[in-house]
Computed example of a mutant assay.
Amino acid sequence: MAVLPIRIMGDPVLHAPASPVDEITDDIRTLVADMFETMDAAPGVGLAGPQVGVGLRIFTYSYEDDEGKPWRGVILNPELWMRPLVPGDPDPDDESEGCLSFPGERFPLRRSDSVLVTGTDLEGDPVRIEVDGWRARIMQHEFDHLDGIIYVDRLSDADWKTAQKIARKRGWGRPGQSWTPGIDDLEA
């Protein structure tokens, strides 16, 4: 297993829809193992294939709730259904999120409170996950990556402008930018 470089906003793979996984091969299994290692090293609660430069519809997730109960897995070729968003502005204390592809920053973003995700696991078996709260946020965030959307693309106008200023200041927003957990001094 290896910790992979994480692409930063502006890399073309992050801004294009990912392709389906046609076959579960040893290369796919190795990629998923590397994604888990990278996600844990970052540390993050999710990681999508495009974030490590692989334009495939795969994401990993890992979250420990307030009671210490772990929730961890991988989904290939996911589909997402969600409840409509509650109208209004997001609460900056309860609805802020960050991203390993826009490291070091957090912005408020309204997400659906409840989602259903289906897909397959590494054995090719069906996966069906119905979650709410923070877990629903993770699923939506990672699913967005598979459609070429970074969470800063969904921010309010004012926060989007702030994110763009940060990106310009850090030299992001162009191809080839990445960071490697454990090597570079960045984290989400």
Results as ranks from 00 to 15, higher is better:
Ala2Glu: 14
Val3Ile: 15
Val3Arg: 02
Pro5Trp: 12
Gly10Thr: 14
Gly10Glu: 08
Pro12Glu: 09
Leu14Ala: 07
Pro17Cys: 02
Pro20Phe: 04
Pro20Arg: 14
Val21Cys: 01
Asp22Val: 05
Asp27Cys: 03
Ile28Leu: 11
Ile28Glu: 11
Leu31Met: 14
Asp34Cys: 09
Glu37Gly: 08
Glu37Tyr: 05
Met39Tyr: 06
Ala42Glu: 15
Gly49Pro: 06
Pro50Leu: 02
Gln51Cys: 06
Val52Asp: 05
Val52Thr: 05
Gly53Asp: 07
Gly53Thr: 09
Gly55Pro: 14
Thr60Val: 15
Tyr61Pro: 02
Tyr63Cys: 06
Glu64Cys: 10
Glu67Ile: 04
Asp94Ala: 14
Ser96Gly: 13
Ser96Glu: 15
Gly104Arg: 02
Glu105Arg: 13
Glu105Asn: 12
Leu109Asp: 09
Arg111Asp: 12
Val115Phe: 07
Val117Lys: 00
Gly124Thr: 08
Pro126His: 07
Val127Leu: 11
Val131Ser: 03
Asp132Lys: 13
Arg137Glu: 01
His141Ser: 10
His141Val: 11
Phe143Cys: 04
Leu146Thr: 02
Asp147Ser: 07
Tyr151Arg: 01
Asp153Pro: 09
Arg154Phe: 02
Leu155Ile: 03
Trp160Gly: 00
Thr162Cys: 01
Lys165Tyr: 00
Arg168Gln: 13
Lys169Cys: 01
Lys169Arg: 15
Arg174Cys: 04
Gly176His: 12
Gln177Cys: 10
Trp179Pro: 08
Asp185Met: 09
Leu186Gly: 00
Leu186His: 09
Glu187Ile: 08
Ala188Phe: 13
